[in-house]
Amino acid sequence: MSTKANRYAHQLLDARACAKLMPLLSNADVLSPMDGYDIGKRILDASIGQGATPVGRKLGFSNRTIWKKYGVTKAIDEPFWAHVFDTTVRYAEDNRGIQSLDGALQPRIEPEVVFSLGTTPSPDAGIEELADCIEWMAHAFEIAVCPFPDWKFDAVDAIAAFGLHGTLIIGEPHVLSSATRRNLASMLANASVSLSCCTEDSVTLCGAGFGSDVLDSPVHALWHLHQQLNAQSQFAPLQAGEIITTGTWTDAYPVQAGQTWVTAFSGIALPGLTVSFV
């Protein structure tokens, strides 16, 4: 797989750099999800070689409500992860931002919750210990991108293609008290978010979702990622200082220049985000 992984990694890097679509990897070869991570490791090494610094991870397909909507040969019914980099993460001052879509292949927007780890979890950390490792949380938009036509792919394709990660736009971080961390999993599970698109002519409610859709809670999604990494020795485990975006609360919706997207939360004191695309 080594030679193939290098070739596929080069093709994916080239597609991103040139903003061009490419055929599915799974159409050309029989590939497993672990092959996708092998390709992802080549992309990680190449990205670091080009000057990017990994600053955390993103979870994809942690929302069970969207599993049946994606997958060419079978539904994608398992979360996956990929790295995020200093070159792909932005912070929205006062929870408002402007984002260029130049070079973004078939961009879609996903409302998510991000955690920053203040301490490194132990290898056998459970839900409560992981929650206690969280220093702050924030609301974020992940702008997902896809190099495969019509957003059609299998799991291995999505894993290999940067986990479909484009840009992560993070709102105001909220430092967590010890009491909040103890109750964070249930607080987020019982919260909901709405996602609306605004143009010059209209405001449209596009989607809504619950924290419980994200593997029962974004904190549980973090635990799932921790478990995955324990089984993947080629990658570093979670470390203090990393940011983790835990997956979308709604489906991913296409975005285009001229639109402004807005979120609002219920059930938790987390401000929404407003991002305009140019």
Rank of each mutant, 00 (worst) to 15 (best):
E142Q: 10
I43W: 06
R108V: 12
C146R: 00
F153P: 04
A82F: 04
T120W: 11
L225I: 08
K20N: 13
M34P: 05
D45H: 14
M1E: 14
S212R: 14
L164R: 01
N230E: 11
V262C: 15
V145Q: 14
E93P: 05
E242P: 03
H83Y: 14
M137G: 01
R57F: 04
D132I: 12
N230F: 08
S202L: 03
A257L: 13
T199L: 00
K74M: 15
G103S: 06
G103I: 09
I76H: 04
V203N: 04
T250C: 15
P54H: 05
I109C: 14
D35Q: 09
C18L: 13
I76W: 02
N183E: 12
R16E: 15
S116H: 10
I170E: 00
L31Q: 06
G211C: 00
F141I: 11
F141L: 08
G118M: 05
V72S: 05
L184M: 03
A28E: 15
F265C: 06
E200Q: 13
P173M: 00
F61L: 10
Q232Y: 06
A5H: 15
T260C: 08
L164G: 03
G166E: 08
N95V: 00
K58M: 06
L101I: 07
V114N: 01
D154V: 12
L59D: 01
V55G: 00
L188C: 03
V30G: 06
G126V: 13
P173K: 02
V214M: 02
L238G: 01
N63A: 10
E129M: 14
V145Y: 10
V219A: 02
I48V: 15
V84W: 03
G51T: 13
L105E: 10
V203L: 07
L12D: 06
F80E: 04
D14Q: 13
G40D: 12
A5W: 13
P123N: 04
N190W: 03
G163E: 08
T199H: 01
V175F: 08
A144W: 08
P121A: 13
R181Q: 02
L229W: 01
P54F: 03
A191V: 05
P111A: 01
G60V: 09
A28T: 08
M34G: 09
A52K: 12
S2M: 15
F265L: 09
M34K: 14
V84F: 03
C133V: 02
P173T: 03
G49Y: 03
A269L: 10
T248W: 01
P254Q: 10
P149D: 09
R96D: 07
R57I: 01
L13I: 13
A231W: 02
P79N: 13
T274V: 07
K74P: 07
A28R: 09
M187W: 00
L222V: 04
V113N: 00
R16W: 12
W223P: 02
F141A: 05
P111V: 06
F162M: 13
T88W: 07
Q99Y: 11
K20H: 13
L229C: 08
I109T: 09
N27Q: 14
S62L: 07
I66M: 10
L21M: 11
T119V: 11
E142D: 11
F141D: 05
V255W: 08
G71N: 07
T274W: 00
W67K: 04
